[in-house]
Nucleic acid binder design. Structure first.
Length: 436
DNA sequence: TCTGGGGTCCTAGGACCC
DNA sequence: TCTGGGGTCCTAGGACCC
């Protein structure tokens, strides 16, 4: 048995903890550059604001519908996430943190009434950190996800698709009287099943497979032929056969990235070099945080694909490193070489990114013959540690590679964040103050 | 009438997740 | 005027090998 614990409208709920005046109002949290909606309160969902709606389409509704838009405050969400995960871990013996706002909990060996236990956990989360969450329980991860979807939908739109009794906590193995698992699956659109995206969803519907129940009853073999092994696994999981295991120890990452759309389009090489240097340094820092090294550096740039009328350009280049490295200077140099190989003047570049590939554990090292003097390498690792300590103590960007530019207004490419709330839980200066 | 089989590695792109 | 970022997995196709 698995449970899925998931914070409702997580980013919005985090903001509401510190600004209770947002309760009951339509609230959206925007992506970087304040580009589009990435989280919506129930009130905003009821207004028809969809995931990924461009902000300029919402903006017109700000005034008349009272929509509040906030820039993403990922520092705050990350901190609230670790608090949520710590509490949710109490539900069972093993936990897989699946994303910033949800985790699976393995329930094998847990005795007593699971539904009751989950309801108490939900209450505890609400009381201790003020985040509402939904909990789904089922015999496979896919069914636990489905149950979680039911729990949230039944809470948001009571009686619309599911009985109100399924709100907040939905245990597929112990449904209320007069309600069967088949009925719940039949009421769930196939596109709402975990692992079925828009593309596969519409193709399935074309084949007459419209609900989760239809998919559960589909022939696994023909699904495999038409859609591949991934969707076949989903079919079996819906049938109650576990195919996706709990990953309580996160597998090592295979790549880390830093990619950004620019605050305004970039036409010249100079600012592009600054941005790529900055992204390379951020990615290299992530590498050191997780104690891995990269063997290849990929850089990409492209124009704005939404502007159909503009000349489009998209290129990427991969540069191998002489040996796996976590050194900011070497990675930045490689990234700049890659950039130079794909740069073309005459375009309005909208986005760039640095992706570090082929990651290896920092503790593993390929021995090699010392064919050249290599003293700088040992000195280099100490240098990176010193750089990280300085930036940790005095703030990011205190020490950086010179090619990332000098900062300030000259960096037209940095992203826009017009409505970001304070970092209430992670910066002393931002600590909320309670008045007596 | 007729053009092998089996394998690896790399890249690009699609699809999905949150 | 204005459309995110960070990941994973799978597949197809080309180059190359024997």
């Amino acid at each position: 048995m698995y449970a899925l614990v998931d914070g409702n409208n997580f980013y919005v709920s985090c903001e509401r903890v510190f600004r209770p005046s947002l309760n009951g109002r339509p609230v959206v949290v925007l992506s970087n550059n304040d580009g589009c909606a990435i989280a919506r309160s129930n009130e905003a969902k009821a207004l028809g604001i969809r995931m990924g709606t461009p902000f300029h389409e919402i903006r017109a509704r700000l005034a008349d519908a009272g929509v509040v838009a906030l820039s993403a405050n990922f520092t705050l969400y990350g901190d609230m996430s670790s608090r949520l995960m710590a509490i949710a871990a109490g539900l069972g013996p093993v936990q897989e943190v699946y994303s910033i706002d949800e985790c699976f909990v393995g329930l094998a060996g847990v005795r007593g009434d699971l539904h009751e236990r989950a309801a108490r956990l939900r209450q505890r989360v609400a009381q201790w950190i003020g985040i509402p969450c939904g909990i789904g329980i089922g015999p496979t991860k896919t069914l636990a996800k489905l149950a979680n979807h039911v729990a949230k939908d039944a809470e948001r739109r009571p009686g619309a698709s599911y009985p109100g009794a399924l709100a907040q906590v939905c245990d597929l193995s112990r449904l209320p009287a007069g309600c069967t698992p088949d009925q719940v699956l039949a009421a769930t659109a196939v596109g709402d099943v975990w692992g079925v995206g828009p593309r596969t969803g519409s193709q399935l519907e074309g084949d007459g497979i419209r609900s989760a129940l239809d998919l559960a009853r589909a022939d696994a073999g023909s699904v495999r032929r038409r859609f591949g092994v991934v969707v076949e696994r989903t079919v079996r999981e819906l049938q109650g056969v576990p195919c996706i295991g709990l990953e309580d120890v996160p597998p090592p990452k295979k790549e880390v990235a830093c990619t950004r759309a620019f605050g305004e389009p970039v036409r010249t090489l100079g600012p592009l070099q600054e941005a790529v240097s900055d992204y390379a340094a951020r990615a290299a820092f992530k590498l050191r945080l997780q104690r891995t090294r990269a063997a290849q550096v990929l850089v990409f740039i492209h124009t704005n694909p939404f502007r159909r009328s503009e000349k489009q350009y998209a290129r990427s280049a991969t540069v191998p490193l002489r040996r796996p490295s976590d050194d900011t200077a070497g990675i930045t140099q490689a990234a700049l070489r890659a950039l130079l190989s794909i740069w073309q003047p005459g375009y309005r570049i909208h986005k760039a990114g640095v992706i570090l590939l082929d990651l290896q554990d920092a503790g593993v090292e390929q021995g090699e013959l010392a064919l050249e003097e290599d003293a700088g390498r040992v000195a280099g690792s100490g240098l990176m540690a010193a750089l990280d300590r300085l930036n940790d103590r005095y703030g990011r960007g205190t020490v950086q590679v010179a090619s990332a530019g000098l900062g300030g207004d000259a960096r037209s490419w940095t992203m826009k964040q017009q409505w970001r709330t304070p970092q209430y839980t992670t910066r002393w200066e931002d600590l909320p103050v309670a008045r007596a």
